[in-house]
Design a protein around this nucleic acid. Structure first.
Lengths: 202, 202, 202, 202
DNA sequence: CATGAATGAGTGTTCATTCAT
DNA sequence: CATGAATGAACACTCATTCAT
């Protein structure tokens, strides 16, 4: 199925997508402030001005990148759940996926809060991604037939998982003289408790 | 008791301290990237160049600010503990202090991770503050006569508390359709469990 | 034949060339350290940032200026030779051209060595210009059918001519109580000897 | 013989002299623009302000350094002459001394002209050093019983020697694909001719 | 004579963004 | 849709120099 226009995109991908991919690659490593828009354009093999044909500004690119990253995470988690097995096995799979996924996006994660601080538009996205995640998490629960749980508890779990993953992905844990494995076990426990309708784990 | 130099400090405070205070005020609101060094100097009522007499660069100022902020937090927590009462009362006090303390430093918190990403020197500070906090937390436990606990568990608690406080201080919680009060209750529970030698709370 | 881009250059010259011209004018008078990049831009009627579209840094502009200056000098010398006449007449013409050319570029000459000291990239240019001059000088000789001469002798002549021209162009000679005319005669003699295949002159 | 004041200078040398020495060390390597006054002071182990007790400004320090360097050169040349022998032997000794002396002061030499360009006060010094050198050279001649020679010829010799020494000391010669030895021979010849009352050498 | 601290005026450079085509 | 060239508004940092003591 050919591209829908005559002039074929440089490598079979639409320009916008190439920009998002380029942005992802760059943001992941150097963060939001460490990546300049001209570099994104260059990496995507387009002219600087082209970026502004597809995005209103730099945070808009970051938005798209972050949003895609979150989506992929949930898809991944979905697969981990579908793969089946007892909760602890699923939880272990998920923990691994999460840490790996976070690890590939250090620069993105590191920037999320500071971007939200300065760019109201991004704060909005950040929150809406948060809402989406919350919704997804709650839907998964009901799809699974789990007992309903307070939205706040789900949020708490989300936040906790987020922070543990950040620490693990940034190699903070070992730099702080702790065993990454042990902390990953905590992560697994949190995940497992969530799968089991249990409260936060022991 | 006169100041030890001839030229008296403009308002009774040493220049360096005035710069740190100014930096704190500005960073708290606008974050690291949103605050320029000349503005810090102006706010401290000194010339732009004076900042560089006392600090090697902008991140060095941030360092001092962050470090002081962490120290104050632990002093505050110490007072909360000393004030006495049953664990749950102490925990409630602490939660309130923490959220308040975080709230006054949104810009700082938002910057910590992203600064660590790009400035290796700052990552070092970040980690050393982390180690310090870990040590403090473990010392508090043994001073209290609590049962020794795995360093990893203490770290997990620290991370969790951090994330919950961030969310609460940033008003993320309500923006996500959750009750801040309810989430604060989760925070209290985590704190209380820690005080009681219990594992992560129910 | 229209300019190949839409926006017509402000005065018929390409931006890059306008920057080089502006740089030349400014460097000639105030030298490298006495000229700031924003001033070059202003003089070229472009924004400060535009300079960095065409050059990687300030020394890069100087490079272009110096290089052009050297080229023009040799073109000029070439014309002087072509104009014909006995060696001493040619030599006199050349001496006049040289001093005039040096005089228009005092700031540039004054900077060359000191720039080479600090900017390795510029030392490279300086040396490569030197090599180019050496090659040119040797080629001229063989084109003229002159006897081949040791590269070192040619270099010595080049250096000597350079220093005499500098002194003459800077009005050092008269400030030192000497007759500029007399020193110019020395310069002519050196040049003439070189044209005649003679060794350094008497 | 003790220092003439009570408080002994930090290492037996007067402050002013320590500053000149520090300046010489620094200027020699990094040139005038590459050396900042606070660094000179630090190197001399005094406070920044102390420099301004002894010198009116930065060029004033450079002045003292340059002046001392020139003096030493002539003392050295004097010794080379006194050591006796046929002109060519003396000339060879002198050439060696000169190149060595220049080599130890690359940064200084590289800066002389550009400093003269911008600081009129330094241009004055530069010229007066020039006059002094000219006088010295002419006096040496008459002391030696050499035939009197046109001031301009002496100046030309001075300039030529200067340029050849610079080239040799900066390793330009070999970087330009020439033999340093061969060029040094040219230098020796120029020196020898001057000692012999001969015109510029063959 | 010496100084610690402070400073004003830069200075080269960056970067998100925008036109005209 | 895409672009090449250009830009305005910073911005972190520097440095020769100066007081008050």
């Amino acid at each position: 199925m050919p591209s829908r226009r005559g002039k074929p995109p440089k490598d079979g991908l639409e320009t916008r997508q190439r920009l998002v991919d380029a942005g992802r690659r760059l943001f992941s490593v150097d963060g939001f402030h460490g990546t300049d828009t001209n570099r994104i354009a260059r990496e995507a093999q387009v002219a600087p001005a082209t970026l502004y044909v597809h995005f209103v500004d730099k945070t808009d690119v970051f938005r798209a990148v972050y949003s895609a990253w979150v989506s992929e995470m949930w898809e991944r988690l979905s697969l981990d759940a579908i793969a089946g097995g007892p909760p602890e096995v699923i939880a272990r799979r998920m923990a691994r996926s999460l840490v790996e996924h976070y690890r590939k996006a250090r620069g993105i994660r590191a920037t999320v809060q500071s971007a939200a601080l300065r760019a109201p538009a991004f704060r909005e996205l950040y929150l809406s991604e948060g809402r989406r995640q919350l919704e997804l998490a709650m839907n998964r629960r009901s799809a699974r037939g789990s007992l309903p749980r307070a939205r706040e508890d789900v949020l708490a779990t989300l936040l906790i998982v987020e922070r543990l993953c950040d620490a693990l992905a940034n190699d903070e844990v070992e730099a702080l003289g702790c065993s990454a494995e042990a902390l990953e076990r905590v992560l697994v426990a949190v995940l497992e408790a969530s799968l089991r309708d249990a409260p936060l784990p022991h």
